[in-house]
């Protein structure tokens, strides 16, 4: 049942599970808490980067449950065993794609616009938004965190079938 790419990270109190196959690059985790979730680093999750409560808050916002958490006392035997394994060769949200120069813009099927590279974002009020090297923009029109994706496209069953040359 378990994908060999899955990883788990603990601070002794809780364990965060990372399931790459579920990630849709909503990028909420590292926009909110780069101290813990940093796709430019290996391992990309640093459980010492913030207090447990902050980590669970951000993990709870992951729209696809690519990130989930459990109290350590609730771990199964198998999960406890896996704690001892070193996170080598892990994938990160970044390594799921290939960062390229120039800036890479990827249109996700029925999902957001994922951007990676060196870029600046100017918001609808003409103010520069928080600098980053990877983010995702809403394409379904219904995000509650505009201009970014928050995973709402799944709830509303957004499709982008009506394509011009984007197909």
């Amino acid at each position: 049942m378990s994908d060999p790419r899955n990883r788990q990270y603990t601070n002794g109190d809780i364990t965060v599970f990372w399931i790459p196959s579920k990630c849709i690059h909503a990028t909420t985790c590292f926009r909110d808490l780069i101290e813990v979730f940093n796709p430019g680093r290996r391992p990309w999750v640093n459980m010492e980067g913030a207090p447990t409560r902050r980590i669970t808050e951000v993990v709870n916002k992951c729209p696809t449950q690519a990130l989930i958490w459990k109290n350590n006392q609730d771990l199964t035997e198998e999960e406890q065993k896996a704690q001892r394994h070193v996170s080598s060769g892990e994938e990160t949200p970044r390594s799921l794609s290939k960062p390229e120069d120039p800036t890479s813009i990827r249109i996700m099927r029925d999902g957001p616009i994922v951007v990676e590279g060196k870029f600046t974002i100017i918001g609808s009020d003409d103010q520069e938004l928080r600098p980053t090297t990877m983010t995702s923009f809403c394409r379904c029109g219904s995000s509650l965190n505009m201009p970014y994706c928050d995973g709402t496209h799944r709830k509303i069953n957004f499709t982008d079938q009506s394509n011009g040359n984007g197909e």
Binding site: E100, D101, P102, T103, S104, I105, R106, I107, M108, R109, D110, I113, G117, F119, F137, P147, D160, N163, N165, G166, E167
Partner: peptide, 14 residues
């Protein structure tokens, strides 16, 4: 919309 200027490469949904 989102207006993009400068160097970039776009990959479609496929």
């Amino acid at each position: 919309p989102l207006k993009v200027t400068g160097p970039f490469r776009i990959k479609g949904r496929d």
